[in-house]
Write a protein that binds this DNA or RNA. Structure first.
Length: 421
RNA sequence: GUGGAUAUGGCGAAGCGGUUAACGCACCGGAUUGUGGCUCCGGCACGCAUGGGUUCGAUCCCCAUUAUCCACCCCA
């Protein structure tokens, strides 16, 4: 069907885009305050980047990627997330050679082939930040604080910050072993996916939703129990920072980012009232990722949040965003002979900085005024008739219905002065 | 990939196996040939997602397809 958009995609119409721009501007402002600058990467990348950067055991790679071959025979993939691209850009553009840390943010469309439902689309939009080159817990706290500040400004209620630490290559092997040992007696009783995870990625079993699996996890060792001294210290410091910033959180030992290059801090912000897809933000530290993607080892930490889910949340909590400003003045044409001069006046006023409406349908004066009224315009200029032969136009105040005659050369100045009030 | 629900004009929403498919909103035009918001009048469905079938006859019954919504999986 030619008039049907692809499944799982959305058209954002003017009334929507006004709200998007408002949020985007808010995010840009926060980023500026935190010292984060925008990074723009391609919408598609070499498929191999995501295989490595996202991880080939993830659902994203296994079943959700939009992969295609271009005319040159390259395998490309529409980005399912932006962290891998950011790391690639950091390495490729040698940002590691400059001043560290490198603080970046991005926003834009991501693509995942999934069945759409509330809060989930095939093309969706993420805002995210990545901080490269800083291993300190202050960097973890900084990105978390940035995300939190956004939700705070929006006035959203009931957000739940979940926090965990998944350790590092020093302490994780022992934990992994301990978890496997703990679960091994029940291996046959775990759900099929968890049985697969058992060898490849046992940490992922922790956040399995299957009640059966959860039952066998009762009393299982946690990553927090197994942290090495460095990781323990790091995690304690992150929490100190969060407390200092008055950011509430709860420890969730089941929260994992299952891949090897994720280290230390993992966090997720949940909101229950936006449907089953309740995660509005997720992130963490990935000290192994830069190296995994072929760069010199460098620490990194970041998060991504889903814009559509933010809108769902605003909607659920009936939080209204300010409407986009309309036009300042509407230029109405009284008679055909005045059309050209009216058009000229509209253009002149625009060049003076005013937002000017003008009828391009050659409708009756009545219809023009009706339209101006529907647009909630404060002033209408009536061009034509006797006034125009005298070199002036009528300025109508739509609120009070008062009308005055103004010489053409004075129109801009008078309007500007009135609109400033 | 699996399951459930739904599918009538721009939007919301009635409707019945059988003459012209309610109504509301929006939109367009008009109501002393230069003026809006209220009121009044008028206009506005290639015909009820698409394709089959049942029937003398279907928008209303059946099947398939597609789409949308929701849920599972998973994630933003």
């Amino acid at each position: 069907m030619l008039t049907k958009r692809p499944r799982g995609t959305n058209d954002f119409l003017p009334e929507d885009t006004a709200k998007w721009q408002y949020l985007e501007n808010m995010l840009r402002g926060i980023c500026r305050q935190f010292g984060y600058a925008e990074l723009r990467t391609p919408i598609f990348e070499e498929t191999a980047l995501f295989l490595r950067g996202v991880g080939d055991t993830t659902d994203i790679v296994q079943k959700e990627m939009y992969t295609f071959e271009d005319a040159g025979g390259r395998s490309l993939t529409l980005r399912p997330e932006n962290t891998a691209s950011a790391v690639r850009a950091y390495v490729e553009n040698k940002l590691f050679a400059g001043q560290q840390p490198v603080r970046l943010f991005y926003m834009g469309p991501m693509f995942r082939y999934e069945r759409p439902q509330a809060g989930r689309f095939r093309q969706f939009h993420q805002f995210g930040v990545e901080c490269f080159g800083a291993a300190s817990p202050a960097a973890d706290a900084e990105v978390i604080a940035l995300a939190w500040e956004f939700y705070r400004r929006l006035g959203l209620q009931g957000l739940e910050m979940n926090l965990n630490s998944v350790g590092c290559p020093n302490c994780r092997p022992a934990y992994r072993q301990a978890l496997q040992d703990f679960l091994r007696p029940h291996l046959a009783e775990l759900c099929p996916t968890c049985q697969e995870r058992f060898e490849k990625n046992p940490l992922r079993i922790l956040d399995c939703k299957n009640p059966q699996c959860q039952q066998f996890l009762q009393g299982a060792p946690t990553t927090l129990d197994a942290l090495c001294d460095d990781c323990r210290e790091h995690f304690a410091a992150v929490q100190d920072y969060l407390q200092a910033a008055a950011i509430p959180y709860r420890l969730n030992t089941k929260l994992v980012r299952g891949l090897d290059y994720y280290t230390n801090t993992a966090f997720e912000i949940l909101l229950s009232d936006i449907g089953a897809q309740s995660a509005v933000c997720g992130g963490g530290r990935y000290n192994g990722l830069v190296e995994e993607l072929g760069g010199k080892p460098a620490p990194g930490v970041g998060f991504a949040l889903g814009m559509e889910r933010v809108f769902s949340a605003l909607n659920a909590q009936e939080i209204e965003l300010p409407a986009a400003p309309g036009i300042d003045v509407f230029v109405a044409v009284l008679d055909k002979q005045a059309q050209t001069q009216a058009f000229q006046l509209a253009c002149e006023l625009r060049s003076q900085g005013l937002a000017v409406g003008y009828d391009t349908l050659e409708r009756s004066l009545k219809a023009q005024l009706k339209y101006a009224d529907s647009q909630k315009v404060a002033y209408v200029l009536l061009v034509g008739g006797d006034e125009l032969t005298r070199g002036s136009v009528a300025l109508r105040d739509m609120q009070s219905s008062e009308q005055i005659e103004l010489p053409l050369p004075e129109v801009g100045a008078v309007l500007t002065a009135r609109l400033l009030k």
